[in-house]
Write a protein that binds this DNA or RNA. Structure first.
Lengths: 150, 150
DNA sequence: TATGAAACGCCATCCCC
DNA sequence: GGGGATGGCGTTTCATA
């Protein structure tokens, strides 16, 4: 993982539609060594996947909600069950266990407030161990990127 | 935007390395009409971009922080300046303006707690209008996906 | 107007230097 | 790390209903 590898990562995380030849001379390498390094980074798992990023707004998913989840009990089994189940909701795009007051932060994408109410009341609140959920609605997305600072 | 388009979107947001032919018969279409629909979805901006997703851990970016930001004043100029500047930090991968107590939620990726301290004290706290920042560290990533529920 | 088939040209991939 | 060859695929055009 030298400077050239980092250069390559910056290029591919910006746009993976470009051809090998284009990306190669963007980083100042001929196509073969560039390709070899790329494959190595993929094999090592530094490059996890290549995906298309969709526009949530254009798909009608206009509402972003942050849900702060508190659990009643913190035994291994409850945590494991909660984590497994919360990850399965397609509306949940992000979930972290946290230090501090709230046990989990969940970011969910829904079409409307009513849809969130259903998600919350019928699903999230029934997840293993959940005692309380504090929901906050996003007013506006300032930044949301998949680009990591390499 | 019919069911077939949604099928296509599900496929490309899962893995954009597959060939047109593979994806086409994954959705039950021959490659030409698949290709045309794909181009249309790109032109409409429903498909925003195609990128490589990197592994933050493997790049040493092991610390995820959620920073809840409160502003002193909420005039147009202050908001606009804050939003423009916060988006420029490469460590900030996510920022939403919020309803409720906190004005902005920021998710940042750093290599260490010390690095976060520097980011917080030297940069975030000096952003336009900021009066207080409440930081919470993620203990574990349960889910983090770019796949939208289509 | 939407689909299927075929041809062309480029690019990812592999071999060797 | 670089250059060359090749097989396959994306792209385009034509044909079809």
């Amino acid at each position: 993982m030298d400077d050239m590898d980092r250069k390559i990562l910056r290029v591919v995380q910006n746009d993976s539609t470009a051809s090998i030849a284009e990306m190669a001379d963007a980083v100042g390498l001929s196509h073969t060594p560039f390709w070899r390094r790329l494959k190595k980074l993929e094999a090592e798992g530094v490059i996890r996947e290549r995906v298309a990023i969709l526009d949530a707004e254009k798909l009608g998913l206009g509402i972003t909600v942050f849900a702060n989840v508190k659990l009643r009990q913190h035994d291994e089994d409850t945590l494991e069950a909660f984590e497994r189940e919360v990850a399965e909701f397609p509306e949940v795009v992000e979930c972290f266990s946290m230090s501090g007051e709230t046990d989990y932060v969940v970011r969910a994408l829904v079409r409307s407030i009513e849809e969130y109410e259903r998600l919350l009341k019928r699903k999230l609140l029934h997840l293993p161990g959940v005692v309380a959920i504090n929901s906050h609605f996003a007013l506006k997305c300032i930044k949301l990127t998949t680009r990591l600072p390499v």
